[in-house]
Design a protein around this nucleic acid. Sequence first.
DNA 1: CTAGGGTTAG
Length: 480
Amino acid sequence: MLAPKPVFFNKCTIGYLYRLRTYASPPPRPPPQLSLLADKCTSMDQLKQVHAQMVVSARVHDNFAASRLLSFCALSECGDLSYALRIFQSTREPNGFMWNTLIRAQASGPNPCKAIFLYMKMRRLGVVPGKHTFPFLLKSCSSVRSLKFCRQVHTQVLKFGLDLDLHVFNGLLKSYSLSGCLDDARCMFDVFPERNLSVWTTMVCGYAQNFRSDEALVLFDQMVAEEYEPNGAIPTMASVLSACAQSGCLELGKKIHAFMKEKGIEMGVILGTALVNMYAKNGAISMAWSLFDSLHEKNIATWNAMICGLATHGHGEEALSLFRKLQKEHVMPNDITFVGVLSACCHVGFVECGREIFQSMERVYGIEPKIEHYGCMVDLLGKGGELLEAEELIKKMVWKADVVILGALLAGCRKHGSCEIAERVVKEILVLEPHNHMVHVVLSNIYAEAGRWDDVLRLRKVMKRRNVKRTPGWSIVDDV
DNA sequence: CTAGGGTTAG
């Protein structure tokens, strides 16, 4: 039998090269454009697939693609910050964009201080900040309201020569005016060579947020005189009205409303909502109602502003009937709506109604309750005396109970004199905050109201051992 | 090569 004659390829023949290409080397597939794929992600699942692609094709160190992934995880609504952090940690040399993205995410997250620490880390590694770093960093300074941080960041801005950038300047103004240095902000504003509408807006809002509505009004008039453009006016008005709502400047709000009428600025959803919110927050409920009814375009934020305004001013029943109307008109509520409605139930003590609404959130509307909603429910059940149910609800949560939610339950225990549950709650709070002595005081008040004097004395000894100072909260204990 | 301010809750 003749063995098949091996085909001999000289190293120089075309055939050899061809064989090398087709068999010896892995089949060459055009590499997918990972950064383009990353841009098209709409969910974390898709993003993880793209990330997996990156790993298997040994391109985890493609910084550009990684940046896009990071930006989705960190900033998108359906993103996942912890996943973003993992991508970041697995990157060999994160570029400036990646640092900025993380700083931005942390600045708008629940713990804005982290943005500042991130910046320090970035500087320690010698990465140079750019004009996109500071606006985000300054945002976290504004929410922390720490003058110390503001000044430190300001020196960094000067060091890197970015003090003439309008966005950076605007961030500086905002954080100074929120950290109690409004007058310093004004000085900077007066000497700055360039101004735009957002800088003006920041300054006017700064006065409004610092309860100086007269000066806000003067500046507002000046702004209108110097550069008024109807299109740019909408964001300005909206932020100023929001500042009025937060700080209770009803007069300034009214004047802006009058100004809008005078200039014939169209009342769109955004300005309409801002006005309804401003009137409702300031307790001008009838004004808010008439405005709400006259708006021909409403969105869910408008309804929320009205419902929450009613709830916070003790018109719980009206808030609930407005919610029924919303359901009748087939408007889709969101999670904020339910915070308002549940807190309305709290104010009027409608336990059964609150229970039903809480159930309907997920079943009817497919909205997953957040910790705020659980907080409202625990508050409601606790006030209504359903303490065991409230405790069960806390256990069912996927998050660890925080001090706020446990405090709500403790308040319920006090109202209904339940020592057993109160003891358990206090124990849990002390795990979270070992130095929170106030809970001892509350607990001893609960014991005192139940007439359990020996427990009061026992607790008093505990407090003495822990060297707790006397506070006004002791009053009932002192009656022993 | 990518990115920065407008309405609603806590």
